[in-house]
Each structure stands twice: as C-alpha cells, then as structure tokens.
Design a protein around this nucleic acid. Structure first.
Lengths: 255, 255
DNA sequence: TATGGATCATACTCATTAGTAGCTATCCTA
DNA sequence: TAGGATAGCTACTAATGAGTATGATCCATA
C-alpha cells in the first residue's frame, strides 16, 4: 500500500496546537460570525491562530460537504479561504487530519448529549429521545457529512481506529439506553444491537439528503424521525382519541 | 470543472452491448459460479463476451466494496481479473460507467420487488414488509455498497440524474405503500415522506457495517429491522402475553 | 490460405494533486 | 533597533491514475 498511510501523521511542526472542540464553539456561535475568511477583513486579529485554524477546518467541512472528500483538493480549500496551499498546511498537518477534525467536530455534541443524559433521572425512553434529537441535529450540521462519511478506506490505520472507537462509544451508548428502557418498561422489548443500528442508520442517512432539501431544520427532522421510531408502523389501539384524529387529518394532506 | 465530466461517456466502441441486468442473474446463480476470472480457466468459452463483461462489473463491485470507489484504480480491477487495463476498457467505457452498472445491478431487485408488490392484494403493511425485506437484502448484497454510495459528486450530470431518478422511484414507492397503509388501516398514520426517509436510511446504512460483521444474512437483518420498525419503541399494551414474555427473556441475554 | 474482425498487451500521454523547499515580510520583545 | 518567532507566498517535486495509440494474436469464413 501507500507508505504515507501507515501511521498517524508525523506532526512536523514543533508547535502542535491542542485540538479544539470546534463543535462546542460552533454550537455556541451563530454561523454568521464564523463564515468567511478572517484573513481578508480582519488585520487586527491577524495573530489569533486558533480562529484561523477553525476557519480552515470549517472551510474543509464545507468543501467536503459539497464536493466530497476525494473531489476536494487542498488548493480548493485554500482558494476558498483566499490563501495559498502552504498556509493551510501551516495550520493542519495533512488532508487526512482535516477530515479527522471535521469528524470530531461533528461527533462531539453527540458525546456531550450522552454525558448529559447520564445525569438525568427521566425514563430511558425520554433520555434516548433527547440524545437522538441531538444526534439528528449533529448529522444535519455542517460537519454531519464528514462525520457520517469519514471512511475507513480513506484513513490511516491509527486514525481509522480512533474514529471507530468514537463511533463505537456512541453505538454502545444507544444500546445501553435501549436496555435500560426495556428494564424500566419505557421501551418495547427489542434486540438492542439491531435496534441501535436501525436508529443510528436512519439518522446518519439524513446527511445524504439534507444538503439538497433544507426545508426543515435539523431539530424538526430529528423530531419527525423520533415520532416514527416511537410509534412504529403497526397501528396503535390505545392512542388518545383527540391526538390521533388530529394527526390523521394532518397527514392526509401530505403527498 | 473537469471537461471530461460534462456528459454521458462517449461510447467510443461501435459495439455497445445492451446493458445486462446483472442483479437478476446474480440472484439466480449462487456466488460460487460467478467468482474468479473467466479468462484464466476457461479457454473454451473465450468468446463469451457477456460473461466477461459481467465479471468485470462484479470485480469492480468487489473492489469498490472493499477499498472505496476513489481508492480503486482500474489497474486494480484489471489485476484482480488477471488482465490488463485496456482489456477492462474493452468491456466498459470508463470508470464512471462501472460504478453506474454496479448501482443498477444493486437496485434492480428492489424495483422487481415493487413490481411484485403491486400485483398483490395483501394489506399495505404486508406488502411493505416484503419490499423492505428485499431492500435490505439488496443493500447487504455485493452491489449494496455501490448502490448506496454512488454519489452525485463522482458522476457526470447525466449519470447523476439517471441515478437520482431511480432512487426517487424507490422512495416514491415506499411513500405510496405508507399512504395506502394509512388508508387501509394496516399502518399507523404517519408523515409518509419522513417515514420513508427513516426506513430507507436505516436499511441503506446496513451497507456501512455489513462488510465487517457478516454474522447474519441479509434476510435476517432485514427481518430484524422490520420488527423494529413495526413495533416502535413505545411499549405496546395489547401484545399477546405469551410472545411478549418469550421475547423479553430472549433479549435479556443480548448485550 | 488470405482477410477481416475480435480480443488483449505493451508502453505510453497527460492531468491532477498531496506535500515541500526555500524565500519574504511582519511583528513582538529585549 | 536587532533578532527571533510567526505567518505567508511562489514555485517546485513526485506519485498516481485515467485513458489511449499501436500493434500482436487468434479465429472464423470466404
């Protein structure tokens, strides 16, 4: 195979800035302040390395999102930032790492949601709903595509292993909630493994169509999906009459 | 952009053999007879162009499946067949077309399942179950990866449009069954669009993990998923006591 | 047995792109 | 204000891989 893909990127620069949890800041700051190139306009904050680094990663996410990882060259990313390619390499050690950072930025809010859920006392189904809501929003975010599509085959073994372990953490978290729900009676007994696959798969797939159809927000999509998961296809006998009727007439209108 | 990607591949060869529905034959013949290179062993059927062409496509599917589209060169495919690259080009006009053929081979059995379903008289939920079963098996097949991952971004506009229309046909078919189910009372009232997205997404995602975890057959996975979809997460009050109890003890064992 | 088509290989072209070498400019600090 | 660190650019290398030009070989048929 390719010798350059046999390990972690050799961080050639002595200054290896700690990884930044882009996701957190992305959630905090509205996208407007973040868009665009900080080089152009802001001479006054030229020295804020962190912001520039984040801009690089965000530009990469945007490009990957639109053209795919393989169809995006680092020249493209540099051009989007109105910068030269070596400048990009000044902030990031290689293309693979760009993808990795995007992945981490995408998955971090989901991990946060799990940490949150663990401290709650609600029934498991409620906690699962909350987590899946955040999951759906993460997939619909600007990093969702990278998170979902970061492939084994494009990554060095070390990165691949790292990503796999993060994914597995999420998977196990969902399974755990499903088991807890079966115990506390809030979730219909099910095979936790296959159910977790189904739930995560459905949500992951959002990344594939969301770009082309942004008529709903991430939160709305997540809510709609959760409603599907909760009710199931089989009709439910004992639903409260009022709500059932409203739902039925509403959905009669959809095509 | 790239000028070579602005249209359908110019089929330079005068002999353009009609597209072959690999999927059908794949379903009919067990994989054993199909694996390997027909060049090597069988000097006696050297002139059977169709079989060789299918072998090329199957080899491509296999390679794409394992290494991804972009990480597979046509030299790789040629090498797998113990043939030179121009030989591959003798059977197929370019790499993009290879991906397209794999896509069609993957999606064809699903279309067939829909055609079948249309002629049945069962309740919509039953027909949907059957279709989804075939869907799941198709995604778990050797062409599943190509079917699911054939991306817009890697295809010429014409191919992209063609694939999109095939995908849309499937999507509309699912929505239609959901609407029919809401009408005949066999399916819980739902938003057909979002529900179809959720169902298809969950099943599509199988392609991402099935390669690494082939402990179940495609049919078994599909059955497990369908059970999840049908029941939903919310506990069901009126389940037959015997089956409920059995299911609960069974799944207590899973981790 | 000559001929033309079908099949396949050798050996290229050419474009793309990840990543780098080496130079320059700016700014902060002592 | 000298000197080092920071930040950036131009111009390269080197590898890869899609697709092709050209010609050899085999076989059926006239």
């Amino acid at each position: 195979m390719d010798p350059s893909r046999t390990g972690m990127p050799t961080s050639r620069r002595k200054t290896a800035p700690g990884r930044t949890h882009l996701a957190a800041s992305a959630a905090a700051t509205p996208s407007a302040a973040v868009r665009g190139s900080p080089w152009r306009a802001s001479r006054e904050r030229v020295r804020d390395r962190q912001i520039k680094r984040e801009a690089v990663i965000r530009a990469a996410a945007h490009a990957f999102n639109h053209k795919g990882y393989h169809n995006t060259s680092l020249d493209d990313i540099a051009a989007a930032l109105e910068v030269s390619k070596p400048t990009v390499y000044y902030y990031v050690s290689n293309k693979e790492q760009l993808l990795f950072e995007c992945f981490v930025a995408g998955i971090e809010p989901i991990r946060a949601a799990f940490r949150n859920a663990r401290s709650q006392r609600a029934p498991a189904r409620e906690r699962l709903k909350t987590v899946l809501g955040h999951y759906g929003q993460a997939v619909a975010s600007e990093f969702g595509w990278c998170m979902v599509r970061a492939e084994d085959q494009d990554l060095s073994p070390a990165m691949s292993a790292h990503i796999k372990s993060l994914k597995s953490e999420i998977d196990q978290g969902i399974r755990r909630l499903l088991r807890e729900g079966a115990q506390d009676g809030s979730i219909h007994p099910c095979d936790p493994k296959m159910t977790a696959f189904a739930l995560a798969g459905a949500l992951n797939w959002i990344a594939h169509w969301y770009r082309e159809n942004q008529s709903m927000t991430g939160a709305e999509i997540a809510a709609a999906f959760i409603s599907v998961f909760e009710n199931g296809l089989k009709p439910r006998a004992a639903a409260p009459a009022g709500r059932r009727a409203a739902q039925r007439t509403t959905h009669r209108l959809e095509r």
